[in-house]
Design a binder for these strands. Structure first.
Lengths: 255, 255
DNA sequence: TTCGCAATTTAGGCGCACCTAAATATCAGT
DNA sequence: ACTGATATTTAGGTGCGCCTAAATTGCGAA
């Protein structure tokens, strides 16, 4: 008998998914921090999930949790919901960049697969959401995303903004304020490793200073500098080399 | 301190609202039947709601419940959500007549006022949903709806379908099957009061027999017989006399 | 190796929304 | 006014998802 996903269990699965995209296993404390619940609550929930059938996670005392194939399936489904809702709100209902996350966070647990499909169809089955995150496909595969944190960009390189963390509206506004948008071209003038600040030059020549809290929210790809396509008005990410379809654990679907 | 509405409490308020649109007070059993929960559960919930602050209902033992102004406000808000969602799914996402209810029933509890506003704006602030139900306005007032059950229509009269109950997909399909649509013109040939059957003639001249279960799901208004506007392709309900803005308790927002 | 701290689990409890079974209240009909 | 049927409430209990406080475990530094 299939256990019915709830808003709460979905959120645990998402948290484990995101944490294990970076680390080996998802620890109790880390999950608690993300979900803003007590560590004790997390222990209880992990035990329950791990002994459900089919179990979405595996769990060993003091060693944290990992997703099973089943849990991964559901986590990706929820992420697909989230990113399609964000895309739809942005494209069809004039929501701003920084407004979509909150609404999506709530609705992702309640829309039907049918509604999801219809939204995707209206949008022409987009592969990336308004923040540049890949939208998992119905079959669970994830569009390619070859990028890295701005902080790791080499000084002197020109990079293109490929992803922006969507979970904090204030940061998104700050990024906008700096004149940075998805797909913006940026030249790295300096990386202040101690402060975490990055000094950049925008396409319009203006020099900007990006504080650590902001820099850590940006991911970029190497810009293969086409002089022709100045205004980046083309289709999404034509500048990216199409990567092979990578297995889930390395595909970097961070939040 | 304001009590936070949940899916469950919203559903209780809607049930009380709908029942008290017809009767004096909403009884425990009737609520239980609608919500498919036990009568004991209803008693418990009514007690809790009545002693919350601000209380959305008043409750007296053995005498059922009634909405307070506060409860009415919330009930109408939820109904507005429901009908706007239905309208939006129908108009923007190609949902069929009989498909919208279920999705709306779930989502009505979770969409923000902001999303609701944006959907309404995209649709041009519609006043009636795809089944002809009036969509409450943001201020709580309800568009006019002067109609009556098909079963009460006089033999020989020609009526126009103004509302169709939306809560059962099978019935909606059956209605479609009979060639009846919102705003269809129908001549009443016979009312079989014992069986509840209505015998009608459609605008195309075809005679149809409408069984009680279906007839009781249709509300109609007197057709002021304009021969010119054959295909009823005009704007919504231009045939209806605009009624005065009626107070809530008499406005007939049945489900 | 052992000490101490940080991470984690256990124990005990809470409110919500539901349940069944048993008691009680109301009401219609004689 | 009584009585039986029906409506409703009370009593006692469940699972979920959360909490705090008090153990415990594991691990790195001395």
């Amino acid at each position: 008998m299939r256990t019915v996903p709830t808003e709460s269990t979905d959120n645990y699965l998402k948290a484990v998914f995101e944490i294990t995209a970076v680390q080996e296993r998802a620890g109790t404390n880390e999950i608690a921090r993300r979900l803003k619940v007590s560590a004790a609550s997390v222990t209880g929930m992990l035990k329950k999930l791990a002994s459900a059938t089919p179990a979405p996670i595996t769990y060993e005392k003091h060693r944290g949790a990992e997703l099973t194939a089943e849990g991964q399936r559901r986590a990706i489904e929820v992420i697909r919901h989230h990113r399609l809702i964000e895309s739809y709100l942005h494209a069809a209902l004039d929501y701003g960049w920084e407004e979509v996350h909150e609404e999506a966070e709530k609705l992702e647990h309640f829309i039907s697969e049918d509604l999801e499909d219809r939204m995707a169809a209206k949008l022409g089955f987009p592969e990336y959401d308004p923040h540049g995150h890949p939208i998992p496909r119905r079959d669970g595969s994830i569009p390619p995303c070859i990028d890295f944190p701005l902080r790791q960009a080499a000084v002197g390189a020109t990079v293109r903004v490929s992803r922006v963390s969507d979970d904090d509206a204030a940061s998104l506004r700050a990024i906008r304020q700096l004149g940075i948008d998805l797909h913006s071209l940026l030249e790295v003038l300096e990386q202040r490793t101690e402060s975490g600040e990055a000094i950049l030059r925008r396409a319009d020549g203006v020099r900007i200073e990006v504080p650590r809290e902001i820099a850590s929210r940006l991911r970029v790809s190497v810009a293969v500098a086409e002089r022709r396509t100045e205004g980046n008005s083309g289709r999404d990410r034509t500048d990216l080399v199409e990567g092979e379809r990578r297995p889930l654990e390395s595909s970097g679907v961070s939040q």
